[in-house]
Amino acid sequence: MASTFEDLEVWKRGCRLAVSVYELLADCRDFGLKDQMQRSAVSVPSNIAEGYERTPKDFIRFLIIAKGSCAELRTQLYISTRINLVSTQQSETLIDETKQISKMLQALISNRQQQLTKQ
């Protein structure tokens, strides 16, 4: 088990994803969608970190919230592409990353749930 949340690869990738979203939307003038996408992106690593510092049961709950934020961001990326706010290439790269992070979160959730049932 990682000794800190900073050691978790999924947290590191979540941080990189959030930075990528901020960079992508730096010049965006659609402030509503921009704000929502940035919030979703930041929510992923933030919930991983917050949950890690709580009880094992809470950690699972926060990982589930992070996974939901990842899906929310993926949805917003699809929308932003359809309204020509983000290029298809940029969107596809970030959508792929959200899918990979979601898989990592699910694996971590399953692992932690198994650990809880063994106790």
Rank of each mutant, 00 (worst) to 15 (best):
R112T: 07
Y78N: 09
E23D: 15
D96S: 14
E6V: 06
A2Q: 02
L17A: 14
R112D: 03
A71E: 14
D96P: 01
G14E: 08
A71R: 15
E97T: 04
Y22Q: 05
S46R: 03
L105F: 13
S80C: 10
T75I: 06
A18T: 12
A107F: 00
I48W: 03
I109T: 06
T93S: 15
T81A: 01
R39P: 14
Q36G: 05
L94P: 13
Q36R: 10
L85K: 07
Q119M: 01
K12W: 03
Q113Y: 07
A26Q: 06
G51N: 08
L33Q: 04
Q38S: 08
C28H: 06
R13E: 14
I60F: 00
G68E: 08
D35P: 02
F62P: 02
L73G: 10
L63H: 05
A2P: 14
R82C: 04
W11M: 09
Q106Y: 14
R112C: 04
R61Y: 08
C70T: 15
T75Q: 05
R39Q: 07
M1E: 03
T4G: 09
Y78Q: 01
D35W: 06
R54L: 11
T117Q: 09
I95L: 04
D96A: 09
L8G: 05
T117I: 14
S91R: 07
R39E: 07
Q38L: 10
A107P: 01
P56R: 11
K34I: 10
Q76S: 13
E50P: 08
R39D: 08
I64S: 04
T88S: 10
L73N: 13
T75R: 15
T117H: 10
G68F: 15
G51S: 07
I65V: 13
D30G: 12
S43I: 09
S3D: 14
A107K: 14
I65P: 06
T98F: 00
R74N: 04
S91D: 04
Q119Y: 10
V21R: 05
R39V: 13
E97S: 02
G68N: 14
M37H: 13
S43P: 05
L33T: 13
E72Y: 00
A49T: 09
Y52L: 08
V10L: 10
T81N: 02
G32Q: 09
V19L: 11
Q113E: 13
Q114P: 11
F5G: 06
L73Q: 13
K99G: 03
L94Y: 01
K34G: 01
R82M: 03
L17C: 12
N84S: 10
E50N: 05
Q76L: 15
R13G: 06
E23N: 15
L85V: 07
T88D: 09
Q89W: 11
L94D: 12
Q115W: 05
L108H: 01
P56I: 06
P56M: 03
S87N: 09
C15S: 01
S80H: 03
S91W: 12
D35F: 08
N84I: 02
K12E: 12
Q115A: 11
Q36H: 11
